[in-house]
Amino acid sequence: MTTSHPGSLLTAHDLRKAYGPTHALDGAEFSIHSGEVVAIMGPSGSGKSTLLHCLAGIVPPDSGSITYDGRELTKMSDAQRSALRRSEFGFVFQFGQLVPELTCVENVALPLRLNGASRKDAERTALGWMERLEVDDLKAKRPGEVSGGQGQRVAVARALVTGPRLLFADEPTGALDSLNGERVMELLTDAARSTNAAVVLVTHEARVAAYSDREIVVRDGKSRDVERAI
C-alpha cells in the first residue's frame, strides 16, 4: 500500500466507493509528486477509472480522504471542486472529446476563454501548445477533419494550455494504433515534464505504462504500490 509521502501533490487514503452492491474502490491508496508520471494499471472492472474520477474530484468517494496541495478535496463544495478542476487540473480521455463545431485552435483555446482570456491571447497561447504537440498546421480544421492521432494531440494541447499542475489521462491512447499511441505518449510526457506537471495515467497497456515513472496496480478496488519512485 502507498503511504502518504511528505511533499506529495496529491494523496489519497483508504478510498471506498460502492455502486449498489459493487465495491468499485475498497481501501485504495495513492500518492503523486509534482513532475511525476504515475500509471494506474489493472484489469477491466478493477476500479482504476473510478479511482481516477475520485482523485480528480469528479466523483465523491463514500469515505476516505483526498488531499491536494494541503487541501482536503472531500470537504470542498461542488463549486470549489469545479473551480479547482478548471484552474489546476487538465484532462485527456480516450476519445478526445473535442467540440465538433469549433476549429482545433478554438478547441485548445477554450479553457482559457472560459477563464476569461481574450480571444487573441487565448489563441496565441493555444497555438504555442499546438506547435509543441506538432499539430499547429491543423489550427483551422475542425475535429471531424483530422485523424484520431491528430485529434488526441489537440486534446493533449487543450489539457495543458492552462498550465495545470496535475494532468489526468484516462486511456489516452486507447483508440489509437501503436505508432500514433507512442507519439502521443512521448509528446504528452515530454510536455508535462517540461512544466513539472504531475500525470495520473490510467492504462491497461504495459507499453503505455512504460512511459511512467512508477505504477500503482488496482485489483478488486484495492490499489497496491508495487514499486517505489525511480
Binding site: 504495459a206 507499453r207 505504462a209 512504460a210 512511459y211 511512467s212 515513472d213 505504477e215 496496480v217 485489483r219 497496491r224 508495487v226 514499486e227 525511480i230
Partner: peptide
C-alpha cells in the same frame, strides 16, 4: 498474487529502460 505483482514491477522496470 504477490509473486506476480513483483514480477510485473520487474518487467515494467525493464520496459521503462527500453522505452
Amino acid at each position: 498474487a504477490e509473486i506476480l505483482d513483483t514480477q510485473r514491477a520487474e518487467h515494467l522496470r525493464s520496459m521503462r529502460i527500453l522505452t
